[in-house]
Every structure is written in C-alpha cells, then in structure tokens.
Amino acid sequence: MFRYLVRRLLQMILVFVATTFIVYSLMYATGGDPIQALAGERPVSPTQRAQLIREYGLDQPFLVRYWNYLSGLLQGDFGKSLTGREVSDIIAQALPPTIQLAAIAIVTTIALGVTVGIIAAIRRGGWFDNATLVFTLIIIGIPIVVLAPLAQLIFTIKIPIFPTTATSGDLYALLLPGIILGALSVATAMRLTRASFTENQRSDYVRTARSKGLSKRRVVGVHVLRNSLIPIITFLGIELGALMAGAIVTEGVFNVPGVGFNLFRALRTEDAPLVVGLVSVLVIIFLVANLIVDLLYAVLDPRIRYE
C-alpha cells in the first residue's frame, strides 16, 4: 500500500509537470505580444517595454523561464497576472464559488442520476425505464452552450425564481447554474447506474442471496446495491474533477466569478501567467480527485489490492 502511494505520487508529479509544461509552452508560443496585451490600447514606449520585459523575465531562454515558474509554484508563488494582481490571490477568490458549483452539480447528479438509474434498473422495461431513456437521450443531445442560456431564459426571466447572474457568489444564486452543470452528468450517471445495477442483478450471488430466503428488498438494497456502487463512485470521482473544468461555459453564462470564468477571461486577454496558474490548479484538483477515487475503490472492492 505504501509503495503504491509513493508510486502514485511520483506519477502525479510527472503528470503535473508535463501538463503545466504543455500549457506553458502553448501560451508563450501562440505568438501575440504579451507586453502589448498588458498595455491594452495604449502605445508602449521602448524603455517601458524593456523594463517590463526584464520585470517579467521575458528576456531569458524559454526553459529557464519555465524552470523559474515551476520552482515558484513549488513555493506557492504563482507569479503575477498581467493585470498586476498576484495569481494566487485571483485563484483564492475564484476557487470557492467553483467548488460550491461543483458540489451542487454532484449532489444533483447523485440525487437524480443515481436514484433514477436504480429505479429504472429495478423496473427494467417498464414505462418509467423507457421514459428515462428518452429523457437521457434528449439531455445528452443538447450541448451545454444551448442548455445553459436556455435554462437561464426560462428560470430567471420567464419564470423568475432564480437571479439571472451569480456574481454575488451566494449559494442560492449558484443553485441554477449548479443544477445545469450537474444535468450533463445526470444522463451519464443514470445510464451507468442502470447498467451496473442490471448486470449485478443477474449475477450468481443474487441467486444465492435469494436462496437464503432474504427479502427482495434486502437482496436489492444490500447485495446488489453494494456491488453496483463500485463503478458509480468511480465515475462520480472522475466527474468531480471534470466538472471543475467543465464549468467554463456555465460560469460564463451566469457570471459566476469562478475558476472557469477567470480562465475564459485570461485566455481572451492572453494573460499567460494567469492561464497557466488556473490550469495548474485544475490539474492538481483533477489528480487529487483521481487518487481519492482509486483509494476509495480499494475500500469498496476487497478484491482490489494495491501493491
């Protein structure tokens, strides 16, 4: 177990370095003039330019710059955004609303996707099962760039039960964008739950459990459920990481001042340090979520032993 953890941590570091390197090179290779981007519309005099170049270390070779950036990261220094603010400050402000948004989305996914999936599996072939199948197809078919503004139009303007934007970042305002974000994985979660549940219902151990004279409720609620949860929890863990990143559109539509919103803006203004910083945070969250899922997996399934 210990050796497994060490190996996983080394892998994570490797993935982290590689991802940040790729994003870093892409950001600095796409051309564009960072100094001009920084100054906006105003003209930049040669002396100003030279000073800024030195200040941001742009005169050094690329690899050296990347190395400086990385070692800064390890000390918690994300560098400065082109807006002049510390990147770490921006991250600290953007993270809470995004985490709240993801939490609402995951709760939505579980409450809707998993429960409905279980009911559909138990009543396989019935009208409920068929209705949810059609529903999931529709949801999967609508891309979020359509779904989010549509929901905004319906639930904040036509039937104004939610505020139009969530700039304030209070929990109630985050409810609608959170549910929208979760809706995407609801369909997948439903399908996965139904498939996993159905497969387990057909297993030999279910026949054994029934032959023990257990009630149907207990066979399904204890024996089948416990086994079906293994892939579902894995999915939810990975989904949590993906949700954080996938929040870009939803945060943009609802003006949630989160990681995705800031990332979108940073990309538009070619604010390379901010982009790299935000992506690094997302990568870390994703990697940690994955590690937790793998460890949870071993707890849920005793057949899995990490060596």
């Binding site: 030999d204 151990y205 054994t208």
Partner: peptide, 12 residues
C-alpha cells in the same frame, strides 16, 4: 451451487 466463487458475494 456449483461455482462458489461467483455464487458468493465478492464484497462481503
């Protein structure tokens, strides 16, 4: 049953 490996629940 015949095959005890599949007839027993793997997670308990």
């Amino acid at each position: 049953f015949q095959d005890a490996l599949s007839a027993l629940n793997p997670v308990f």
